[in-house]
């Protein structure tokens, strides 16, 4: 499988598949393809009916779409950003924020999990992440620009929850309420943020995909 990134502002990933090679993605990301490329649905059944209900509440699709070679097929998130490719070793796991995975090779196992929010009334209720385990290639889309960090063991960072793009499984995240100053008023005006702790790779994105972005 060969991946080529086309375009700079709203990029797309052009994938060339050999006969029998297969990639999967969320619904609605295919831009164009060779007529020779085969297509089928792959239903997400983890967690049974309860899992499906939970994912539907989080806006996670019920199925993935798979494309089988030979031929070419292009994918795009149709938003401004950067596309990066990652080659996972056998057993290596990365976790990608929802709405950021572009595609992955068939050999990459897929799972998704829920990151709970702080649970405060009227505040963040959490979000979903895709968990991808190698071997194989993973292609992801960072909304806006991608900022990459490598955290040492115990090194921490605090961030807006929409900024999280990708992390190693060894990087832990936890939602917390960041007070805006001291006293009761500071706690009343607190806002949700993420506390991230190393070791491992961490990538941030400068656009929050959950917000509506006007055309620049």
């Amino acid at each position: 499988m060969d991946v080529e990134v086309k375009g700079a502002y709203i990029p797309s990933a052009l994938v060339r598949l050999d006969p029998g090679e297969e990639v999967y993605c969320e619904a609605g990301l295919m831009v164009y393809s060779d007529p020779s490329v085969g297509f089928r649905y792959r239903w997400l059944t983890q967690g049974g009916l309860a899992g499906v209900m939970k994912r539907s509440m989080g806006g996670i699709p019920f199925h993935l779409q798979t494309f089988q070679g030979p031929g070419y097929v292009a994918f795009s998130r149709q938003r401004p950003g950067e596309i990066r490719t990652l080659e996972l070793k056998p057993g290596e796991t990365v976790e990608v924020a929802e709405h950021s995975l572009l595609l992955a090779e068939r050999s990459v196992s897929y799972d998704c999990f829920y990151v709970p929010g702080t649970g405060r009334v009227g505040r963040m209720i959490g979000f979903w992440m895709d968990r991808l385990t190698g071997p194989g290639k993973v292609v992801y889309h960072g909304h806006g620009n991608i900022l990459s960090f490598t955290l040492a063991p115990g090194e921490t960072m605090e961030m807006d929850h929409g900024a999280l793009l990708l992390k190693d499984a060894s990087v832990t995240i936890q939602a917390y309420n960041q007070p805006l100053g001291g006293g009761l008023a500071g706690h009343a005006m607190s806002f949700e943020a993420l506390h991230v702790s190393g070791p491992g790779r961490l990538a941030l994105q400068t656009l929050d995909p959950s917000r509506d972005h006007p055309a620049p």
Partner: peptide, 17 residues
């Protein structure tokens, strides 16, 4: 505005103004 913060190091303290 606090809504504009993307990330910060824990050593950076926040106060309300």
């Amino acid at each position: 505005s606090h809504e504009l913060m993307l990330y910060k190091e824990p050593s950076v303290k926040m106060q309300r103004r």
